[in-house]
């Protein structure tokens, strides 16, 4: 339930050491590697959502400066980590603004949405797969055993997902995507390759988190959420505009965000 997941990140006082056992996360960001040959033209995103989801209850620390401190705070909030942020002076200001916004987001009785399960085996290969799935906005739940509620349960090293195939996580991620079918995905994001979303739902409402990993606003974004919602309300710290071109029918709800800063929360409701 989100009520439990609405953990606020906090500042690690200057000079203080992180608590024992805290895992340091990467600075969230986009890496544009235009001159590097790759299997995809998509920019590379350093995101930590999969690490946080993989280790519930773990203590995390970000060591980031400037605006990255705000982004780190938003990422930790999105995935329900009470992370510590170690940053510089400008970072404290940026994080402070983000924290004020995060405090204003009301706690609701919501559950993270997943379209399939991934069986945790603790390996690096599975970790890399989770990383790619997050990056591709494929919503998963990490399980100890297959969940019969899902049509797709992924356990690497089985006949369905052989070990040889698993050496190429990108291949496996695309295979999972095709098994689910894009039309059946609970969340789709169009118009940007640098925004990662998370979706939570309750009986009559849903909440979309949008984290923009670029260091500049995304101009024009289309979001599709499975389920019929008649109203969308955007909450954002700065540099965001209310959703436009709202449309909904029995299967899905769609809206556009004209401008997205580092982070936004969109609450969807049925009335």
């Amino acid at each position: 339930m989100l009520a439990a997941a609405l953990l606020l990140p906090s500042l690690l006082p200057g000079g203080a050491a992180p608590p024992a056992g805290a895992v340091e996360l990467k600075a969230p960001r986009v890496e544009y590697r235009v001159n590097e040959a790759s299997a995809t033209r998509s920019p590379w995103i350093d995101s930590n959502g999969w690490r946080i989801l993989r280790a519930p209850g773990q203590k995390f620390v970000y060591k980031v400066n400037g605006q990255s401190a705000a982004l780190a705070g938003a990422e930790a909030f999105t995935y329900g980590a009470g992370a510590l942020i170690s940053t510089d002076g400008p970072g404290e200001i940026a994080f402070g603004r983000m924290l004020e916004f995060l405090k204003s987001v009301p706690a609701e009785d919501l559950t993270p949405v997943a379209d399939f399960g991934v069986i945790e085996d603790g390996t690096d290969v599975t970790g890399e797969l989770l990383n790619l799935l997050t990056r591709m906005n494929l919503l998963y739940r990490i399980e100890k055993n297959p969940d019969r509620g899902f049509a797709v349960n992924v356990r690497l090293g089985t006949p369905s997902y052989p070990a040889d195939e698993a050496k190429n996580p990108s291949f496996v991620a695309h295979k999972i995507r095709s098994q689910i079918g894009d039309d059946n995905r609970s969340l789709r994001i169009y118009g940007s390759e640098v925004v990662i979303g998370r979706l939570l739902k309750g009986d009559h409402q849903a909440r979309v988190f949008l984290v923009n990993y670029a260091n500049q606003p995304v101009l024009g974004l289309r979001v599709r959420v499975r389920g019929n919602y008649s109203k969308a309300e955007l909450r954002a710290g700065v540099t965001a505009e209310q959703p436009t071109d709202f449309a909904h029918d029995e299967t899905a709800t769609e809206f556009s965000i004209p401008q997205l800063g580092a982070f936004a929360v969109i609450d969807l409701s049925r009335n």
């Binding site: 590097e36 040959a37 790759s38 299997a39 995809t40 590379w44 890399e128 050496k167 190429n168 996580p169 990108s170 291949f171 991620a173 695309h174 295979k175 095709s178």
Partner: peptide, 12 residues
């Protein structure tokens, strides 16, 4: 990155 360069998804 090396993972991705193993011919990756387009092979699928």
């Amino acid at each position: 990155r090396a993972f991705l360069q193993l011919a990756a998804a387009p092979a699928l």
